[in-house]
Write a protein that binds this DNA or RNA. Sequence first.
RNA 1: GACCCCAUCGUCUAGAGGCCUAGGACAUCAGCCUUUCACGCUGAAGACACGGGUUCGACUCCCGUUGGGGUCGCCA
Length: 469
Amino acid sequence: MTVVTRFAPSPTGFLHIGGARTALFNWLYARHHGGRFLLRIEDTDRRRSTDEAVAAIFDGLSWLGLDWDDEPVRQFSRLPSHVEAAHRLLDEGKAYRCYATPEELADMRERAKAEGRRMLYDGRWRDRDPGDAPSGVDPVIRFKAPREGETVVEDAVQGTVRVANGQLDDMVLLRSDGTPTYMLAVVVDDHDMGITHAIRGDDHLNNAFRQTQLFRALGWEAPAYAHIPLIHGADGAKLSKRHGALGVEAYRDMGILPDALANGLLRLGWSHGDDEIIARDQAIEWFDLDRVGRGAARFDLDKLMSLNAHYIQQTKPHALVESIRPHLERAIGKALGSDNTDRLIRAMPGLAPRANNLVSLAESAAFYVAERPIAVDAKAARQLGEDSRSALSELLDVFDALDSWEEDKIEMAVRGFAQAQGAKLGAVAQPLRACLVGKTVSPGIFEVAAVLGREETLDRIRDALGSDE
RNA sequence: GACCCCAUCGUCUAGAGGCCUAGGACAUCAGCCUUUCACGCUGAAGACACGGGUUCGACUCCCGUUGGGGUCGCCA
């Protein structure tokens, strides 16, 4: 049997990390088993569904590297099949028309609540004579759910879960306007799409009972279910906008690499021994449902950042430069020339270990491409006192006389110079950093000088010396 | 409230009855490295929710309690 999984978001907002993780698990499971991963947009709620949300979901999945097979299915377009299934159940006596008004239903819930029972529909139209139907009221079609016995779901993550059928009521299949409800649409679509494994959030576990009953009534086999624990916010409650449940694009904007996010999401609720850093291919090879945990997890940004730092270091210099190019070009107000690009590529090995996200990487790289005279911040300016400046002007001659401009040559020269001056290395290195970088923090200063090139280095020193005179 | 699910360091987790003196990662703290900041390295602190069973032996199995979460729509 070929594995077919699906990700079925409702397009009412961006792709948040909970959805992203659900998609990731479905994708991984399909890829691991050489199966197919399908997409279904659950847009039967016409009021709340938007095209922007659909686009955001596609973008988010693509950015995360979760590619899907076949054309995405628009659930709304499958309405005829849903209606047909509902009518078939009606014909077979497995569903019935219900004329209860919203007010009646609200009353019913009110009473159930007061009496400490579940707030269920009482089935008042279940066996009633259709002749009693009030005129002028469009009925809904309800499923005639079994009242005796229990319904069992064999969940790949949660194990065997059972509920007494008395706890379940006759759900609405078709609304009074003739459109299908989620419960019906999911079942019909999962069947028609040949879904073999439904991997979704824990919040659907209760739905699985009803869906199982529906599958049975329709004479179909339900997919294998796997209800993965939800991701919680810092307060331990289901992630929502209140917790800053961000869309994946927000993480992208924070400078998170998609591989890092995927790795972080994967480790939330799934593990492989003590392994923390799991590359995509490795994840596909290792992923399976039996390693999915059962408790809800909280999302930790610190850990994501640390993972991100790792992935940044794994990324090739030129790719890193490309990913920070937009930031940099915005900062200097023009396109980066090829000379600056080359310089940045040479600078990346020194910069990358210092950054845990692309935004700070871009910020730390900015001085390399800044136009002279570069800005010098207050702390750095303090390094450029009179003594430092005179030392720097002598250093100028030393640099000028160097026969080759390489990191180790520069280092030897500066160390020798400091020693000759009877100064500590820091007394020379820090002022030098101040004029080359404009800040007191940077990669190794000899490396900086080497990457900058002799001419630029000398010019920046001269800028600093000249500015106060 | 009813039903369903869950429960190991602050956080993510390892743990399939003796391998546990409970391991790893992030965060925290200390030290080393060092021209700065990082990276890296070394070390420290830090958890089996509680109570009963079962067993020669429970973090592991069972029951209960407590706590947390989810669901109870003509939303999905």
